[in-house]
Write a protein that binds this DNA or RNA. Structure first.
Length: 279
DNA sequence: CACTGAGCCTGCTAGC
DNA sequence: TGCTAGCAGGCTCAGT
């Protein structure tokens, strides 16, 4: 599932080929992908726009358009945003799971492929986008996210730490993979109540979040199955994960205790029962 | 306020 | 072997 490092990688790989291009035409094969904009409106509004910026906010890829609007793309679980150079367009064809395609002024194409159809592409005014963006919590790789701030954020609510990390209005961009990895690195149980986390532990968790996300970006993201960069390449970070996706019976890399799979906030979580204790 | 459950989807897999 | 039921999972919304 694409999280901050995967979305950042897609963003970086698409920026160079897309900025400065113009969208010539759009085809929508699955109408719900562009909800709530009606397909007819999407198709009439988007073409003719130049792409002036490609950025990331939380797990969204944001395309700033020359006409003043913004396209935001959320990949959810299985979405892929692939740049097809002109010479590769023919071979790419329509494929099985192509939901939306943008044809560009250089003959290239930007394809939104999404097996499970959970992904969304939204067309927003700049004002609406700014309002939406303001609902997200801080970006964990920005300077504003410092240990002191994080500690006071944790103290401000009484919630289980893992669902809290997954809450995009609390902190932006973290999903199931990196929540499990960061909590394991900081030796914090996913059900630990946020307000009861010590200042020292809060710093450890802060640093674990930053380190986990940064090194995942350096490794171009985690590819389990569907995730690809904007140019179709797999990531390599999966080989560095210590808990997420571990086979049953896998031993903790630190203490050798068999890892355990539990459910927290309705999501599967892998922990070391010895390193990550509730009390 | 904090948490739970349904719904959105399809591909894979465990179990028969 | 062939089938089906159930699971996975980010996010939103309604309900407790």
């Amino acid at each position: 599932m694409p999280e901050l490092p995967e979305v950042e990688t897609v963003c970086r790989t698409l920026r160079e080929p897309l900025v400065g291009r113009r969208i010539e035409s759009v085809e929508v094969f699955w109408p719900r992908t562009v909800e709530p904009t009606p397909v007819a409106e999407f198709i009439s509004e988007v073409p003719g726009n130049g792409i002036t910026r490609v950025d990331r906010r939380a797990k969204l890829i944001v395309f700033e358009l020359s006409g003043g609007g913004v396209l935001t793309t959320h990949l959810r679980m299985t979405g892929q945003l692939l740049y097809r150079p002109a010479e590769a367009v023919k071979a790419a064809g329509r494929g099985n799971h192509l939901r939306v395609t943008f044809e560009l002024d250089n003959g290239a194409r930007l394809d939104f492929i999404d097996t499970r159809k959970f992904g969304r592409i939204r067309l927003l005014s700049l004002e609406d986008w700014e309002a939406r963006s303001a609902e997200f919590g801080p970006e964990p790789l920005e300077a504003e996210f410092d240990p002191e701030t994080f500690y006071s954020m944790l103290r401000s609510v009484n919630r289980q730490i893992k669902p809290l990390l997954l809450d995009q209005t609390f902190i932006a961009g973290i999903g199931n993979i990196y929540a499990d990895e960061a909590l394991y690195a900081a030796r914090i149980h996913p059900q630990k109540i946020s307000s009861s986390i010590s200042k020292k532990k809060a710093r450890l968790l802060h640093d674990a979040i930053v380190d986990t996300l940064s090194s995942a970006i350096e490794n171009a993201g985690t590819t389990f199955r569907d995730y690809r960069s904007g140019l179709g390449e797999s990531g390599t970070n999966q080989s560095r994960l210590l808990v997420y996706g571990a086979a049953p019976g896998t031993e903790c890399a630190r203490c050798g205790t068999p890892l355990r799979r539990i459910v927290v906030g309705q999501r599967g979580s892998t922990i070391c029962p010895r390193c990550q204790r509730l009390n």
